[in-house]
Design a protein around this nucleic acid. Structure first.
Lengths: 199, 199
DNA sequence: CGCATTCTCTACCAAGTGGTAAAGATCCTG
DNA sequence: CAGGATCTTTACCACTTGGTAGAGAATGCG
């Protein structure tokens, strides 16, 4: 039955879009269902509860993010080049899939349902990154600094890109690639000034 | 009856805190009322509808923000010093009243009720700032660039500070002044590189 | 075919939502 | 004290919400 994963994915797509724009509380299962031409009970069949749907959406997004970064980590870029490659990869993902930024911002809110799960999902990735960076520091290929703080700042910068895009759009400015590229440059500048020993 | 403005302000305080953390949709009038030890009908008496309450909250916050900036504009700082003074003043406001950042982020969301009203409230301030900057550009005291884009980027950076603080807190790091100061330094650096002709 | 699995549907419900109507309080003023 | 204005309350309502129960389709397999 090829329909199964198809319906499930269609629901996930719609839920991601709605959670990211209207928020979790601002989304009703009926809204999603009607938008897809089915009944909300179908959604509950696949995900049991609304919270379960959110969890599935969070898991998928965290998976996308993790996969994108694994891709770079499996590549041949090293040292500072690897940092730059990671940033570029994440920004590319954000541009390809803007709704992802909306969800990230939603779950970055205090008291947000999903926040804990997203964090749990990204924890291994963060820990891995931190260990790598600290290793590089230890051998002098990166300058010494608080690795975790650095990573979280980078994370919130990426999330902020989503906010900025929406702010611009609300002000009637259709965001161009330029504004995003600028943010990326700033983030790279921040990371370079924190990490690059050649600086 | 001195109670009137008092009760009203207490409701506004509680609503600001709740809208900023749980979001508009995630807040029920009952929640607010119970937290204040009164009935939700009291809230509705003062603000007629939930939406009216949001509007009042947005208006007050926009007023705080505007007043803070007027304060600087009435001061004696000029040229680049004025830009720096404005940034410092806004960051100080954000530190004094962190809940304000929560609301700003809430209304910076697409489809957010209140987004339009916040924008309408801040529009005059933004227009005034743009005109001033463009004037400075015209006489060569600032470098030429897209003033509105600059302002909106600065705005979203400030909003991003709120997100970052919450991300850090969620990760178990109690945000220190240091992280906020760093963001301020970055924003000033961005503005300087965009505007300062001495650069 | 018969049967079981997988999926989607209709029907319904308990709880919570924002909001209305109106009765009391509390206070100021003539 | 009487009466009006301001404020807070109780009682109630229409509606939406997430969720349950169970009946039908559709598909795969013996």
């Amino acid at each position: 039955m090829a329909d199964r994963s198809d319906t499930k994915n269609r629901i996930l797509d719609a839920a991601l879009a709605s959670f990211g724009t209207a928020g979790f509380d601002g989304t009703s299962l009926d809204d999603i269902a009607v938008g897809l031409g089915l009944r909300k009970q179908t959604i509950l069949y696949h995900f049991v509860t609304k919270r379960g749907l959110l969890n599935a959406v969070v898991d998928r997004c965290a998976g996308d993010l993790t996969r994108a970064m694994e891709e770079v980590l499996a590549g041949e870029a090293r040292d500072w080049d690897r940092v730059e490659a990671l940033v570029r990869r994440v920004f590319r993902l954000a541009l390809d899939q803007p709704v992802l930024l909306g969800l990230l911002r939603e779950v970055s809110r205090p008291n947000s349902p999903g926040a804990q799960r997203m964090r749990a999902n990204l924890d291994p990735l963060m820990a891995r990154a931190r260990i790598w960076i600290e290793g590089e520091m230890a051998v002098g290929r990166m300058r010494r600094t608080d690795a975790q703080l650095l990573l979280l700042s980078a994370y919130s910068t990426v999330v902020g890109v989503g906010t900025e895009i929406e702010v611009l759009r609300a002000a009637g400015i259709e965001p161009t690639l330029r504004t995003v590229v600028q943010r990326r440059r700033e983030l790279l500048g921040f990371l370079r000034s924190s990490l690059d020993p050649r600086d």
